[in-house]
Design a protein around this nucleic acid. Structure first.
Ligand SMILES: [Mn+2]
Ligand SMILES: [Mn+2]
Ligand SMILES: [Zn+2]
Ligand SMILES: [Zn+2]
Lengths: 140, 140
DNA sequence: ACAACTAAAGAAAACCGTTGTCAATAGCTA
DNA sequence: TAGCTATTGACAACGGTTTTCTTTAGTTGT
C-alpha cells in the first residue's frame, strides 16, 4: 500500500471520507520531499483536481497535521510550509533555495541537555534542530 | 551606557531619531528576558508611553530586527515573538509556559554536520537549535 | 533660541492569509 | 438504492500586519 493510500485509510478510520480533492492533497503531501505552503499545495492539487478550492486545501492540511502525518516547518521566509512528519526522533535538513528536505538522525545532545538542566534549573522537554543549506541540485 | 541607550544610539547612527515611543519599545525589548510578540510589546509599552500606537511598535520592531538587535523566535504557538539577539554562536532555551529565555553555547554539531554533508551532498550553511522546557518558576 | 528640514508619529484604511458560514453535493452504510 | 451526514466550494468574515496620509516633533545649522 502506498503512503497516500495509508494516509487516506487513516482518515477513514477517523470517520473521514475519501474524496477526489482530498486524495489530490494527500498524494502531493505524501509524495513530495519538499516543504510546501498551502498556496503551493493548492497550485499542485489543481493539476490533479482543477475544481478544488483553497479552503479544502487548508482543511485537509489541518486534518493531516492533527493525525501527525505532516508537520509545520519553520524557515527564514516563513513558517507556513508543511512536510511529511518525522518518524521517531528525526530532524530535518532543508535546502534554502528549493525547499528540498532530508530527514536525519544521530544528533547527540544528551550531555548538553543534562548539563544545562543542572546549570539552569530548567526541565528540558523537547528540542528543535534544523539544518539549512544547499542541496546538490541547487549548488549550481 | 545601558543596553537600551546603546540600541537608541545605533538607531541614531542610521539617521534615526530618539523619541518617547521608540524609547519605550527599545527599553522593553532590551531589558526583558522573555520572548514577546508585538501585542505584548504594545501592552508593556503603553505603560511607559500611553499614547503609543500599535503601528509604532511594529515599525520599531522592524528597525531593531534589521539592525540585528532582536530576532524572531519560533515556538509551537506561533512565530511572532521577538527576543534580544544572540551574541555570536548562541542558541536559546525557552520556557514553554512563560516564554522566559536563556542563551547557551556548547552545542557540538561539527561531526554530525560534516558527516551529513558527505553522505547527502548538501552544503550545510546554518543550523537552528532550540530547547524547550519549564523554567524553575514554572515547575510548580 | 529659532527656523528649516524631514523622520516618526498616530489614525484610518487596506491588505491578505486564514477561518467561518451555508447550501449543495457526494461518500459511505444499511 | 435510500438515507445519513461528512465534505465540498463560494462567499463572507476575521485578525494580524502593512500602507497611506496628515500632523507632530527631533535634529541640525544658523
Ligand atoms: Mn534530536
Ligand atoms: Mn550551534
Ligand atoms: Zn517558525
Ligand atoms: Zn517559565
Amino acid at each position: 500500500m502506498s503512503l497516500s493510500e495509508s494516509w487516506l485509510a487513516q482518515l477513514q478510520v477517523e470517520g473521514g471520507r475519501v474524496t477526489a480533492p482530498r486524495r489530490a492533497v494527500v498524494e502531493i503531501l505524501a509524495e513530495t520531499d519538499r516543504a510546501l505552503n498551502p498556496a503551493e499545495v493548492y497550485e499542485l492539487a489543481r493539476r490533479r483536481h482543477p475544481a478544488i478550492g483553497l479552503v479544502t486545501v487548508y482543511r485537509t492540511i489541518e486534518r493531516l497535521e492533527a493525525l501527525r502525518l505532516i508537520e509545520r516547518i519553520h524557515q527564514h521566509d516563513g513558517c507556513h510550509a508543511f512536510l511529511r512528519a518525522a518518524q521517531g526522533h528525526e530532524h530535518v535538513l532543508l535546502c534554502e533555495r528549493c525547499g528540498r528536505a532530508l530527514r536525519f538522525v544521530g544528533d547527540d545532545l544528551e550531555d548538553l541537555i543534562r548539563s544545562l538542566q543542572e546549570r539552569t534549573g530548567f526541565i528540558i522537554r523537547e528540542h528543535w534542530l534544523q539544518l539549512f543549506g544547499l542541496c546538490p541540485a541547487c549548488q549550481t
